[in-house]
Nucleic acid binder design. Structure first.
Lengths: 215, 215
DNA sequence: ATATGTGAATTGATTCACAGCG
DNA sequence: CGCTGTGAATCAATTCACATAT
């Protein structure tokens, strides 16, 4: 497996979403042209993206919606469970804990533990699970088999939390804090940073001649 | 102005952030090497990114922190005010309304209006401003000079809201809903989609040999 | 002496054109 | 005949090397 563009992975998520919508309305077959239109990319792009991982269509006929959907789920690692801990139970942490799509669509991810260093929050329950102090991270991560940590603390606390998550043995971090995290090479971090998006928007509104593309 | 990589704009936001932190601790001068280390990119990359917009350093000496900071703010359009409306006052809309960084650091953006179609929410106040029904969008957008809309409604409602924002004369959309929006070419949309980040994370944890990079 | 700014070289991603299969 | 799958060609982004300025 040579080198796969990082943008390809984002597009696979988009294709998977489209396939889910198609399946929910009973559509059984699709094509690279159709997926391309829905995903706002070229049909070449769709076929090339898929070709990194194998052959999923039948020439002359297109793709089976359920089959391609299952394959993309597998490729993205969504056929196995991922256990998640949220660190930082402010507005955002609570909003994520209450986000019902984890049960509806994305049940590959399950929220197993919640952490906050505020003594007023420790012990309170979220989704029938007690909020714990971050000092318990190592024990809880290993006992509950936590794979992924959501960092939803303020900017100034984010690096410390990341260090604790890494020390506890986490495999990846979804970082909602508006800062870059320093982690060892083998740990994956995905930023989710609306302020970057907002400032990009500011730039592109001010410079309309520069077209932004799929991000 | 030829073609500027979209990733360059994201990196400019990162550099600006670093410069803000440097300035807040009283550092007056920096260099492409230093910025590169903090931003987790190469020094070539920093200089090339800046070179798209002009010359901001002095050879042999490096960059003035306050000067470069001011220049990057200007380039990103952050020296003028942007008026923002939030459509969808659920958990996320409220969390964003309560996000104090808009006053602390990002005071180029000011939240001017809130919308929700739920009659139970219409008329309630957020930050001393009444939540309005989306049917009032055209009037409020023009009266308050709204430039940017945050779409924080559920997936199924997002495209309809986007259409209303566009019809009302908005210039850009920050889309928090997990779906692609169809808008006219001249309208800019920035996605902020944690589910895409989460699924990317799943992929890269499952395929550790493929390194992900700055996104 | 030192660190920027930039054309040239390289690497990477997308687009294309068409061969291959149903 | 239609649509996929893929090597080749093009286009874009990053890296490099060094000329340039202080």
């Amino acid at each position: 497996m040579s080198t796969i563009p990082t943008a390809t992975i984002s597009r696979l998520v988009t294709y998977l979403r489209i396939l889910g919508q198609l399946e929910s309305v009973g559509v059984k077959k699709t094509s690279s042209d159709h997926l391309a239109e829905e995903a706002q990319v070229s049909a070449f792009q769709v076929r090339k993206d898929l070709a990194y991982f194998g052959r999923f269509g039948t020439r002359g006929a297109g793709y089976s919606v359920p089959t391609l959907r299952r394959e993309l789920s597998r490729i993205l690692g969504l056929t196995r469970p991922w256990n998640v801990a949220i660190v930082g139970m402010g507005h955002l942490g609570h909003a994520l804990a209450g986000y019902s799509s984890f049960e509806q669509y994305d049940f590959s991810f399950s929220l197993k533990a919640f952490f906050d260093k505020d003594p007023a929050k420790v012990g309170r329950k979220v989704l029938d699970t007690e909020i714990r102090h971050p000092r318990e991270l190592p024990r809880v991560v290993s006992e509950k088999g936590i794979d992924i940590g959501f960092v939803t603390v303020p900017r100034a606390a984010a690096q410390g939390v990341a260090d604790q998550l890494v020390a506890a043995g986490i495999k990846g971090i979804l970082n909602f804090a508006p800062t870059l995290l320093n982690v060892p090479n083998e740990i994956h971090v995905e930023p989710v940073d609306f302020l970057v998006g907002l400032k990009r928007l500011s730039f592109y509104i001010q410079n309309p001649q520069l077209k932004e593309e799929f991000a």
